[in-house]
Design a protein around this nucleic acid. Structure first.
Lengths: 188, 188
DNA sequence: TATAAAACTAAGCAATTGCTTAGTAATAAT
DNA sequence: ATTATTACTAAGCAATTGCTTAGTTTTATA
């Protein structure tokens, strides 16, 4: 009874996600999204409501990709702390761009929008961060000599370090990033 | 022969700097600057050329403030590595806002504008980062047991950590930030 | 006191923003 | 084939962006 959509929502959202990842939320205009996603503004708004809606779906798409490329590997590994270090190295690869790195889309978002960010989007971000932290804690607990207090402290430390790596990867050279990772894990 | 300016450029720039610090470059509109600086757009443009000009002066103002509150203290201290740790703690105080922290204006800028940033502004930022790093190296060299290679590595590590602290301070609680600093200096 | 130079006010500029809407084309059930 | 439903195109909306300009006010000098 009705006409068919000429695009697959999951496919165009992945393109939108990459645009947001490269440029940030504000800098990415609806016109840019139109071009990159290859669909008209009408279609965008009928599928996702508004720009925030497109971004929310992009965030979900990013989470899925990051889960596959990073979190699942961390989850499956039995290497304890070494697995977390692997996560750090994998992240650099994951966020690689043509020249410099793009950082983590979620970190970029919090950093750009801060308090102004939509609460739905923020809760998505927090859920992901909490998930990563719990996996980090599990790997730290592999070492039976550590008490829960040092584990909590080290988990906090690693979460902040991860944020640092995300931002620093956008402006530092590979050598500095590797120096960072190696030094960061020296005392663990 | 001519009318006097009704404002002091240094004073209004400090206000502009605080606005940019809180909101970032793009989110800060010329209208917002007008209100915050308490001067008309005409005056803004005649004093600083354009929005980028206002921002460039704001960056210089930030550098001056950060130098006084952070770098000079680091420079003067004779506590070696402990002085660098002090720098980290001082930074948290320096970037404090009403509720969360504002991070470092320079880090925020690179993170927001990335490659799109004006080259003049970028060179100001790089100069400042290089300056901090050289002071960090000096403090590390206090420990005569460290060879130049480990010093270089540790300096890289600390610079990335500082970026991390800047971003993380915008979203983490004080306890996590202190956990980070303490853990970060454990192996040094 | 008259004058020229600079600084003010405020209205307005084109371009861009996110979003909407009027009109047309395609589709599956009747 | 007709019809109801949805998706498309593309033009256009008000609001905001960075910036300019026309006209007025202030000021130190001649």
């Amino acid at each position: 009874m009705a006409r068919k959509k000429e695009y697959i929502e999951e496919e165009v959202i992945e393109k939108a996600m990459n645009l947001f990842w490269r440029n940030g939320y504000e800098t990415t205009s609806v016109r840019m999204l139109e071009k990159e996603m290859g669909i008209n503004q009408f279609s965008m708004y009928s599928s996702f409501g508004n720009k925030q809606g497109v971004f929310l779906e992009s965030v979900k798409c990013y989470k899925k990709k990051a889960k596959e490329a990073l979190v699942d590997k961390l989850k499956q590994s039995t290497n304890g702390v070494e697995a977390i270090k692997e996560y750090f190295y994998n992240f650099i690869e994951f966020s690689k761009d043509t020249k410099t790195n793009k950082g983590c889309l979620l970190t970029n978002t919090v950093n750009e929008l801060g308090e102004h960010a939509d609460t739905v989007i923020m809760s998505e971000i927090i859920k992901f961060a909490t998930d990563i932290k719990s996996h980090i804690i599990k790997k730290l607990e592999t070492d039976k000599q550590k008490d829960s207090e040092t584990i909590a402290k080290q988990a906090n430390y690693l979460m902040v370090s991860l944020q640092g790596l995300s931002v620093a990867s956008k402006m530092f050279e590979k050598q500095q990033l590797e120096d960072f990772i190696e030094s960061a894990f020296e005392s663990l």
